[in-house]
Design a binder for these strands. Structure first.
Lengths: 222, 222
DNA sequence: AAAATGCCGTACCGTACGTTACGGTTCGGC
DNA sequence: GCCGAACCGTAACGTACGGTACGGCATTTT
């Protein structure tokens, strides 16, 4: 209900158009707010007239950019949710690490800032598109993993959505809001791995079926 | 390090100025992006010249508004962290419920959207002010509660900051980002109570010293 | 070869908004 | 009753930016 447009109602952009959208992304990361149509045209070496012909108006360009970036992020796959605890843990940890890497990337930060600023106005919900391709998309891909874990007797929960929201909170904590507000928080790859592992252990301590006492202890450390 | 200005470097605004800042807040909630100086002057029944004399420029007005709202939210007190488990649980749950109520309030949403949009530009970090008075302020007030719990042998953790960040994640989950992006998520007071209780139980299951097996089970349900 | 199409670069228009300036009004002090 | 300060309401200015129009060049089509 949060998004009115799905992600497939527009055909794939041409190579030249993809170059334009990449220019928008780079400009967004570098200049943040100063994302002006003139600047996009200059960066992409195209005319404003072309921008308007291809994307309709500024909001259309931004929406196309969001979808373009979403298609790129959606690359990761997480099938084969096999049945032993080690594999499940790896799947969870992989999810967590991927998600942390995404939300801490400059592109994601700039994109979310833009969408949030847009949500303040009314028109053309970029926020809905971002939600649909970010938070909700990952939840949708996460559900089969959780339910396979439950079917294998490794996890116990009533509602997979609720369980996922807990995992989401354990993984993200205050990272996204701090980055969005401009905090100079940096996440090195090894930190991401460590935080992902901790969140996974904590999640398994809460929802795992196996004897969790040792997991609880290990989950207590940073 | 996230904020360059503290919250006490400006004297208390006069009653008339507070009325102006309240006008800014109400306008922010209603109009979102369309927060124009002319609109503020009209809403507050004052002249633009007065706005500029009192607050310097638009950013000064916004910064004063953020500080004014922060001073209002900071009202809640959480002392007397006594030593039994029931009181500790109540303190945690009270914290969680207050925080959920804050981040889901229209004022907080509008304020954070504004600050995040501002963080995209460079000048005058509203984001830092919001962080300092929101996320970091509550963490600072939370620390004594956690450490009292540890001193009483009820909690086990090495770093109180890390423990708090876990609690933060368990409480907030995806609520704030969804609301900021415009999702039509509503939190009724009884839902807040329930979610706060669940997050508290989950946190105690992870960090509590007492036998956690029953807590783990109760924390599994939504 | 000529016409057409697609696109770049740039100049231009209209508007929204931050900021300033100014005339008129209220009010406390003498 | 008068003065000056503070403040309201509004008009005016400058700029930034979304959107449009147009001339020129290259590639394709007929």
């Amino acid at each position: 209900m949060a998004a009115t447009r799905n992600t497939t109602d527009a055909e794939e952009p041409t190579a030249r158009q993809q170059a334009v959208l990449d220019a928008v992304l780079s400009l967004m990361v570098e200049e943040g707010d100063r994302l002006t149509m003139t600047a996009v045209a200059r960066r992409a070496s195209c005319s404003k007239e072309t921008l308007y012909k291809w994307f309709g108006d500024r909001d259309g360009l931004l929406a196309a950019t969001v979808r373009w970036q979403a298609a790129r992020v959606r690359a990761g796959r997480y099938d084969s949710p096999t049945l032993d605890i080690a594999t499940l843990r790896d799947s969870l940890k992989g999810f967590a690490a991927t998600w942390l890497a995404v939300i801490s990337s400059p592109t994601s930060i700039a994109l979310n800032r833009l969408a949030i600023g847009h949500a303040a106005s009314r028109k053309s919900n970029l926020g809905g598109i971002v939600l649909e391709n970010g938070r909700f998309a990952i939840g949708e891909r996460f559900r089969p993993v959780l339910e396979a874990g439950r079917d294998a007797g490794l996890l116990a929960f009533e509602d997979s959505e609720t369980a996922f929201r807990t995992f989401f909170g354990l993984v993200g904590r205050d990272v996204q809001i701090r980055l969005l507000l401009g905090d100079a928080l940096t996440l090195a790859p090894d930190e991401i791995e460590r935080d992902a592992a901790q969140a996974t252990d904590q999640f398994l301590a809460l929802y795992g079926q196996a004897e969790p006492s040792t997991k609880v202890l290990s989950a207590r450390q940073a």
